[in-house]
């Protein structure tokens, strides 16, 4: 147990280290140097050590990397070259919107995908299975920007049942507390807080369906395949022979064993969700980190590009680390090793 935790801890630190090396290299590749990396350095270290004679010293790459790390741990990601605001604080205004959308999309994918996968596995090669498998293939092959447009076309423009863009109706004024619109509306002391919550809910449905489609297809497929192999295991057959009810056998014995590989798959969806949020947010005008990054790319706002990739990748690495720990806790083979 201790061994595997420390191994995961080292893996996490190593990934983070490679990430900082990468972003540091990236910062040096940018057509415009990131001001925050060098400005302070020149002021403090160079001035102090070498007086005013700049030409004497090539800025040492190793030293500037150390300085870069120091800046990161101070939470200094520089200043947006377009808006002049701190990149670090911008990230925390935009990221909760992405997180909220991703969580709702992931819940949609899990709560639909797992039962569908189980259904398909139980009726292997029958029509239920075949229709589930072909829909997952369709979902998997759907370019999500096109899928988003089709859904908007159908639900918003033809049926008019769903809003086209943004997180909440413009008539509501909700002050951010957690950054999650669904939570903030409920926390708000405005008289219309409940209507605002409904409006927020109404706005998140379509984007989260779009964002959740690929994870849904992947989760369904992997639930199906792991359930099929588990349902053929001796321990499932012997559980049936012991007279346990089919419900217990399926939802307790089989699902508990499928949970571990499933958790790995769900962990991999973090990347898929972030990738998808880039597209989904730009189509639904969702003010999240994906849209923030894309706009920075369009405007060539390099401090924001640098900060966004660093923060988003750190988030992904961190979630993978937490999931690994969770797996260690849940897997009896790892947990009780003596």
């Amino acid at each position: 147990m201790f061994y595997s935790i420390s191994k995961q801890g080292i893996n996490f630190l190593a990934s983070f280290f490679v990430l900082t090396l990468f972003t540091f290299a990236l910062a040096n590749f940018f057509p415009e140097k990131l001001a925050f990396l060098y400005a302070n350095q020149i002021d403090q270290s160079l001035m102090a050590n070498h007086g005013t004679n700049y030409d004497l010293v090539e800025p040492n790459l190793f030293n500037s990397y150390l300085f870069y790390l120091q800046q990161l741990f101070d939470g200094n990601l520089g200043i947006s070259s377009v808006r002049g605001t701190s990149v670090f604080s911008e990230f925390f205004t935009y990221f909760p919107a992405t997180l909220e959308l991703s969580i709702v999309a992931l819940l949609f994918a899990i709560f639909l995908g797992v039962p569908l996968g189980i259904l398909a596995a139980r009726h292997k090669n029958q029509w239920q299975d075949k229709s589930v498998v072909s829909s997952t293939l369709i979902g998997y092959s759907m370019p999500i920007f096109w899928w988003a447009m089709l859904l908007v076309l159908f639900f918003s423009l033809w049926l008019g049942v769903s809003p086209v863009a943004s997180r909440i109706g413009f008539e509501y004024d909700i002050s951010p507390v957690t950054g999650f619109m669904l939570v903030d509306t409920l926390l708000s002391d405005q008289p219309y807080s409940l209507e605002a919550f409904k409006s927020a809910l109404h706005h998140i449905v379509l984007p989260s369906v779009v964002l959740g489609t690929v994870p849904l297809a992947i989760i369904t497929r992997s639930t199906r395949s792991s359930m099929i192999s588990i349902l053929n295991e001796d321990y499932i057959i012997s559980a049936k022979a012991r007279g346990l009810s089919p419900v217990t056998v399926l939802w307790k014995h089989a699902l508990r064993n499928a949970a571990l590989p499933l958790l790995t798959i769900i962990g991999l969806q973090v990347s898929t969700l972030i990738t998808g949020s880039l597209i989904t947010e730009s189509i639904f005008a969702w003010p999240g980190a994906g849209k923030w990054l894309l706009e920075a790319v369009y405007r060539r706002d390099f401090p924001v590009i640098h900060g966004a990739i660093l923060a988003i990748a750190s988030f992904v690495i961190l979630t993978h680390f937490i999931l690994d720990l969770l797996m260690t806790y849940l897997d009896p083979k790892l947990r009780r090793k003596k």
Partner: peptide, 18 residues
Amino acid sequence: SSKASIIFQDPKSSLNPC
């Protein structure tokens, strides 16, 4: 199941690992 029981060849796989 109340009258008959079965034991299988491979004891490791006939017990649920979780």
